[in-house]
Structures are given as structure tokens and as C-alpha cells.
Computed example of a mutant assay.
Amino acid sequence: MKIDYQDHGVTASITISSTVFEFRKHNRVVDTTLFLTSTTAKHTGFFLMKTVISGKTPVVMRAYRIALQEMKR
């Protein structure tokens, strides 16, 4: 699983990518992040899953920290 943070000034985005073998972990990280923050997400792919979470920079930075903590669990 790979988490990438991109800052675009006022907005920011997180890209979470993983393989189909990490399906449950990927969904857990994305669901927890979306539940605890007010961001939007876009899902693509099946074998190589990719989720882009975007929103305002402070909110996405908090979502990034939550995603890293959830990934370590």
C-alpha cells in the first residue's frame, strides 16, 4: 500500500494505491479517513486499486495523518 500527499495551494489531495491482495486494508483506510474528515473521494481500478481523496489543505493534512495511523494498524 502506498499513500502519496500532494499540496496544490488552497486544495490538496491524497492518493492511496494498493493491489487487490490488500483489498480489505485499502477499504479500511479509505473508509476511516472519509468517516473522520469532510473530504471527497474518487475510486478507480480493480486489480490495482487507486483512491484519490481531495479537499482543503488543512482537512486533507488531517486525513493524511489519519490514513497513516490506520495503515499501521
Score class of each variant (00 low, 15 high):
58 P>R: 01
70 E>R: 00
46 F>R: 08
21 F>I: 12
24 R>M: 15
7 D>R: 02
25 K>D: 15
30 V>F: 04
28 R>C: 01
24 R>P: 02
24 R>Y: 15
6 Q>I: 15
28 R>T: 05
38 S>Q: 09
12 A>I: 04
61 M>I: 07
17 S>V: 10
63 A>R: 00
18 S>I: 04
7 D>Q: 05
11 T>D: 14
27 N>Y: 07
57 T>K: 08
62 R>W: 01
68 L>R: 03
14 I>Q: 03
59 V>I: 13
30 V>T: 05
1 M>F: 08
4 D>W: 01
55 G>S: 03
8 H>P: 06
53 I>A: 06
51 T>W: 08
58 P>E: 07
17 S>P: 06
12 A>P: 08
22 E>C: 09
11 T>I: 12
28 R>K: 06
59 V>E: 09
27 N>S: 14
9 G>F: 08
57 T>G: 00
15 T>E: 15
68 L>T: 02
27 N>A: 13
69 Q>W: 12
72 K>V: 03
65 R>G: 14
21 F>D: 15
41 A>K: 08
5 Y>P: 01
29 V>S: 04
2 K>F: 09
24 R>V: 15
50 K>Y: 06
8 H>F: 15
32 T>D: 00
41 A>F: 08
65 R>F: 13
73 R>E: 14
56 K>M: 15
14 I>A: 06
64 Y>R: 01
28 R>E: 10
4 D>E: 15
48 L>P: 04
47 F>Q: 11
40 T>V: 10
60 V>A: 07
70 E>K: 00
37 T>A: 00
33 T>V: 14
27 N>T: 12
23 F>I: 12
20 V>D: 10
41 A>N: 11
32 T>S: 01
19 T>Q: 07
66 I>R: 02
5 Y>S: 02
5 Y>W: 10
54 S>K: 01
47 F>H: 14
35 F>P: 00
21 F>P: 00
41 A>V: 15
47 F>L: 14
54 S>Q: 10
11 T>K: 10
66 I>T: 06
42 K>M: 09
68 L>K: 08
4 D>N: 14
47 F>N: 13
43 H>E: 14
28 R>D: 09
6 Q>G: 07
30 V>I: 13
20 V>I: 14
69 Q>M: 13
53 I>R: 01
68 L>N: 11
55 G>M: 01
71 M>G: 01
12 A>K: 01
43 H>A: 09
41 A>W: 07
33 T>L: 08
7 D>I: 06
32 T>N: 02
55 G>H: 02
70 E>V: 02
3 I>A: 04
